[in-house]
Nucleic acid binder design. Sequence first.
DNA 1: CAATGTATGTACTAGATAGTTAGTTATACT
DNA 2: AGTATAACTAACTATCTAGTACATACATTG
Lengths: 219, 219
Amino acid sequence: MATQTPDSPVAASAARDPERTRSEILAVATHEFADKGFAGARVDEIAAKTRTTKRMIYYYFGGKEGLYISVLEQAYTGIRALEQQVDVEHLDPAEAIRQLTALTFDHHESHPDFIRLVSIENIHRARHIARSEILAGLANPALDALTRILDRGRAAGRFRDDVDPIDVHMMISAFCVFRTANRYTFNAIFKRDMLDPARRDHYRTMIGDLVLEYLTASG
Amino acid sequence: MATQTPDSPVAASAARDPERTRSEILAVATHEFADKGFAGARVDEIAAKTRTTKRMIYYYFGGKEGLYISVLEQAYTGIRALEQQVDVEHLDPAEAIRQLTALTFDHHESHPDFIRLVSIENIHRARHIARSEILAGLANPALDALTRILDRGRAAGRFRDDVDPIDVHMMISAFCVFRTANRYTFNAIFKRDMLDPARRDHYRTMIGDLVLEYLTASG
DNA sequence: CAATGTATGTACTAGATAGTTAGTTATACT
DNA sequence: AGTATAACTAACTATCTAGTACATACATTG
């Protein structure tokens, strides 16, 4: 009785839910590609981990590469939506930099799959990102925020004036990405887990100090 | 006449040169793995690009994974040999930091294959490095040099004293690795090639400033 | 120079893998 | 109710790929 009421309005549930099918494939694929890379991931395995079949991957995404590109698109846009929430406009410039840095730090730490996808896409020389219309012109809200903060800091004579927003963003990213992306080889060689919770605050402060000392130096 | 003199002492040349066969396979494999990752690289293609056959890969390296591990071992030990050449002992500590930073910068820039192999190995969670006896206890000479420099700088009251050599090494690596490893996605999104020769000096100075400002700050 | 092990090449195979064919079932619309 | 279409399934296939069996040439050494 409780099985399949055809007219039940919400509980079309299990069968026939294109939205769910699509998003479930994407979610599983995100994890699989992040875990094993594009060549290492297996279409059959992705399908097996969903409640649908391989055919649906081809139905919705065209193929392995189409699926991978969709994964990248979703990951990047999801991240950007999160970054939109930066609200550091009315803070003291130095404090704003500190918060933006901490935000990037937290963000990268809590999205290892995204960091891994970025690494993987760099191995592919960003070939797929280039092919995606969505990702081609994807601005970075964190960069906009940063630009305004730097302008204010410079106007107030607090920051050095030979500073470029993209460069500052690069410094912050470099540190935060390295900590997550190179965790394993770094630990293998230096016997130090950069993601050890005991060292989290230390590194979180460190990257803030690093950037601020540079910005407030004479230049 | 010039073909195959069996007693010619050096020119056993083309045929029968195990040393050359082995090293040629390694060289080609290094490039292929760095280019396409472990799963993406093809044993047949590696073999085709050497003057020998696939059979020799299995003869000398046991299999694809054995070959990959050998590639990592060779790459890491080659790099370490280069790092040994750091001679910054008798310099002013600040100047020594600058030189060490520049050395890392130059090094990473001129060894993209190595950087790619490191990225790839991180995707594999350093599984293969862990399995290699050679790489397990591979110290980092750059780190030793750094430790002594920091000690001297601290003793002279020039560097902050809450500083840890591994952390400083991490800062330097983060920047230099990021610049090479994330070149493609960074360029795709920010339209800036971090390896543009026109910006090389700028970044080379920047990482030196960054580290030194941090080290000489109050702490 | 015989013999023994090292080095090398050719041809093959079993299994994996991306992608497809040919359909069936549910749902929305008229 | 009838029908068009979107969503879905199961089974199949061509090809690729890591790895191997087998045969053989070369070199070293007693």
